[in-house]
Design a protein around this nucleic acid. Structure first.
Length: 158
DNA sequence: GCCAACGTTGGC
DNA sequence: GCCAACGTTGGC
């Protein structure tokens, strides 16, 4: 069991959007960074926990929880020329980019802003706070996961 | 909108 | 293989 933080711009795809999908599930497509790709393809497993992070918005925050319900498979949006994230180097035979499916679990009653994370002794070291960190999928420790659950007074949903 | 940090590209 | 130029990310 591993834990991950996934970033999304709420103007593009928010936690509410995920909740409103059929089965509250959506594929996490469009990642075009090799380090994140490797995680999506090789490391992230069904049942892993996901912290849903809103980036590039007035108050960037961890806003909710999700879980992985399908493991790495080719990102079809890389194969479609009409798609924004189309990549001509990726093919059906040799896909370059991968995605997983994530399912909505819950909103946090106390979303955690960057300031809130910085002020918490167990969360101030989180990767998402590091300067220049642009990884859109990044690992979270079990301590960080549990601290966030404790702050929100919720049982581990996984 | 600004700009720093980072990844990628491509000429050499 | 180096490195400058460029595009993107993302906090502020």
């Amino acid at each position: 069991m591993n834990y991950w933080l996934m970033k999304s711009e709420p103007s593009c795809f928010s936690l509410d959007d995920l909740k409103q999908m059929p089965n509250m599930t959506e594929h996490w497509d469009g990642v075009r960074n090799y380090q994140a790709r490797n995680l999506l393809r090789d490391t992230i497993k069904v049942g892993d926990g996901v912290l849903f992070y809103h980036s590039n918005c007035p108050e960037p925050s961890i806003v909710g929880l999700a879980r992985v319900v399908r493991e790495g498979y080719p990102d079809h949006t890389a194969l479609d020329p009409r798609e924004k994230h189309f990549d001509p180097k990726s093919t059906d035979e040799k896909p370059i980019w991968f995605m997983v499916d994530v399912q909505y679990l819950s909103h946090l009653t106390h979303p955690l802003s960057r300031d809130a994370l910085r002020q918490h002794p167990l969360l101030s070291g989180m990767g998402v706070l590091r300067k220049g960190n642009r990884l859109s999928v990044q690992p979270v420790t079990v301590e960080e996961w549990q601290a966030i659950l404790a702050i929100n007074e919720i049982e581990d949903p996984l």
